[in-house]
Nucleic acid binder design. Sequence first.
DNA 1: GTGAAAGCGCTAACAA
DNA 2: TTGTTAGCGCTTTCAC
Lengths: 355, 355
Amino acid sequence: MQDSDPPVVETRVPGAAFGGAPTIRDVARIANVSIGTASKALNAGGRLSQETREKVLRVAREIGYRPNDLAQSLHRAKSRTIGIISNDSFGRFTFPIVEALENRLAEEGIAVFMCNATDDPARERQHLDQLLGKRIDGLVVTARRADKRPPIGPLAHGLPVVYVFSQADDPAALSLLPDDVGGAVLAVGHLSALGRKRIAHITGPEHFEAVRLRRQGYRSALSRAGLAEVDGFYRPGVWSEAWGREVAAELFARREKPDAIFCGNDQIARGAADALREMGVAVPGDVAIVGFDNWDVMALATRPPLTSIDMNLKALGREAGDSLLEMIAGRKLSGVERRPCSLVVRASSVGGGGG
Amino acid sequence: MQDSDPPVVETRVPGAAFGGAPTIRDVARIANVSIGTASKALNAGGRLSQETREKVLRVAREIGYRPNDLAQSLHRAKSRTIGIISNDSFGRFTFPIVEALENRLAEEGIAVFMCNATDDPARERQHLDQLLGKRIDGLVVTARRADKRPPIGPLAHGLPVVYVFSQADDPAALSLLPDDVGGAVLAVGHLSALGRKRIAHITGPEHFEAVRLRRQGYRSALSRAGLAEVDGFYRPGVWSEAWGREVAAELFARREKPDAIFCGNDQIARGAADALREMGVAVPGDVAIVGFDNWDVMALATRPPLTSIDMNLKALGREAGDSLLEMIAGRKLSGVERRPCSLVVRASSVGGGGG
DNA sequence: GTGAAAGCGCTAACAA
DNA sequence: TTGTTAGCGCTTTCAC
């Protein structure tokens, strides 16, 4: 059976390319037209008799023809492909960003190469080389923390690059970041609007830019509300529940206790909430708590559920996609853009007393 | 200076391809050799004078030449590219898998297209079309839960596909999964080896295959240890901390209390641990607890830290990469392969009494 | 309305 | 040792 069909096989022999995927040449031959005609029919262009067009399309469908995008790319000098390099090994923060970005780009028929560099410059360089070889039309760089990093490069001049949740040390680059200061102002503003006067701030390590910015927001919101910054109420440390528990316990062993805590992330907030509950302090009755990140798995599991600041990472990712598309279309974009966070109110700041 | 070099510019005019990236033609022209010679030099092949080779390489380096991988692919009929379609929007479980896979493939110089289908068959189809157009050499399909799914297709015949943390309803397909039964046996075996006799199982919804398999492991480990399955000790429900708290409280209101709990995931385990601590039951003194997933953020934050079952997702991802590479090389692989889990012991099952 | 051919960037077979 | 050329799959211009 198999051996009785040499002629057909023969026509595909000098190539047998790409696992035998049919080419436009196959379509043309079977439909009995020239390659040019087949191309015109498939691309819905040029003048062509209805009959021929349909014949070609039918054949194409029947043999499962699908244009080879690599060949097309070669011709149009655009790969319709972009790369994304992450140093977060695509963790909790990068995920939503990358997902939204991929969605946006998929809408335009652009495919995304995913590369994980895990903070290793050598790996990053290697990935970049590969991507440049693949002639990506653009690049997105993302990271675990939004601190400054050396810019990507040197690379094919004019390759559009967007840094998101990551900041290049290069004024000509475009960086998209959440507005940490504004997020903190939102949190503290919410608490002061609820009548809280003694607001503490438990947060992560100060070498994170986010920690410094959120503190700045904390301070400016306090002064805007006419509140004093109590000595010992600002507590940088680590991003863990244990730290939240520890500081909360300590603050409530003081004479001057806070009536609200703004936490640098949801884990700290959860730790604080746990410690307070166990000490018999009512949340939000005695103390209101606001977290940061709005990480559902933490915020919802906390008792009571956490009011938190959402960095709107999906929106950030989508905008990164928009910006990259614009840059690919030729626009020059640069600067550090900070996008607003939002406040998600739950029971840890308002509602039935609790504890 | 710049304007004094018009001829060079001119040579690149009919094309200006790919953002002006230099081509091998540019290298050849500047090095004053033929294209064929340049190619030989760059590919370290054929016989060529040392001198010429070096000259070519130097020019290539100077003008920043990087071979166009699309053109190479076209020629060699391999794209050195694979696709990965996820229905987990790359969440907690898929991510370690994808990361390890990407690492493995990067070692071979293969790039990975990332596609998120989010359980929408239309989006999946669309992504698949795009990937096939890009002539990927292979495909990996991954999902949020390891339940059976309709196989991908129809697609270019012979495209290697590996399902990981996902199972195709097709005996000819290769699926790589964690061994849930074995994981449960490990957990319950650990508890019974510690002398626990009354082991309860709080877990997620029964429509998850993982729940059914883990229960099976639970039962077989009980009987292997000569322990009875106490009525009401098997508690399917939902994957939440609240469920863990609820059931734990309930079990300890009974006359016949368990002396160990094997939980279907770490969230349930954490809920149980919290409830018990608040009831004054000592963990692991009175009750030992084992979770499942070894999700660090949960397992480590629990008081006491959770003993848990690790599905070794990174190893699974790496193996998926190995398998895909083999299939690309021509081997046919199929069947449902389950890979062992491991037990990670922490203080919730052994150690200082606690509570 | 249709076909022929050049060219996208590269490799490999064959000439010189 | 080096150059020439065909061809990978596709689009597009230009003849017919």
